[in-house]
């Protein structure tokens, strides 16, 4: 099997061609965070709504490569409706999966996300996959500080 087949496995292409939760969210409870990957030109805006320690809704407006678009799509599917604790665990698991050589115990809800592991061999492209997740981390940090009364806005997340 050629590497390109592996990298562009059907799951990735499916999410690339039909990205889930693409778009924007509105309302004063919605936080938006920008993420950019200057190397690749990937750009995204994450819209996040956190209530009662839960990610009740999120959407991403993105323009990027297949890996980036697919990662955005898969992430929104995995995270939507989950508690903050669960989301944090997922972030941890995903990062480990992408950064560490051998990963066992990939949870069931990672079925699609697992396909992104094919990217591991291409260091420049790991960033494409990680961008939505790093943007989510900034979004969650901001949601938390907002809940505790701060008015500080989110910073743009960059891979560089």
């Amino acid at each position: 099997m050629s590497l390109s087949d592996e990298l562009y496995r059907e799951t990735i292409l499916d999410h690339y061609h039909n990205p889930r939760n693409q778009g924007t969210l509105e309302g004063d409870k919605v936080l938006s965070v920008e993420g950019v990957n200057p190397l690749c030109g990937d750009e995204l805006v994450l819209y996040l709504k956190v209530e009662n320690d839960k990610v009740v809704d999120l959407a991403i407006k993105s323009r990027g490569c297949s890996i980036n678009t697919a990662s955005c799509s898969m992430m929104t599917e995995a995270v939507k409706g989950q508690s903050l604790a669960q989301v944090e665990e997922m972030i941890e698991t995903f990062k480990n999966m992408m950064m560490k050589p051998e990963v066992q115990d990939i949870p069931e809800e990672f079925e699609d996300l697992e396909a992104l592991q094919g990217v591991k061999k291409y260091p420049v492209r790991i960033k494409c996959a990680l961008l939505p997740w790093n943007t989510l981390i900034e979004g969650l940090r901001c949601a938390e500080s907002r809940a505790s009364g701060s008015t500080e806005g989110p910073k743009t997340v960059s891979t560089e």
Binding site: S4, Y8, C40, G41, G64, S66, I67, Y122, C128
Partner: peptide, 9 residues
């Protein structure tokens, strides 16, 4: 298609 995808393939 994104140029990075093209280059990779």
């Amino acid at each position: 298609l994104h140029p990075h995808d093209v280059g990779q393939v």
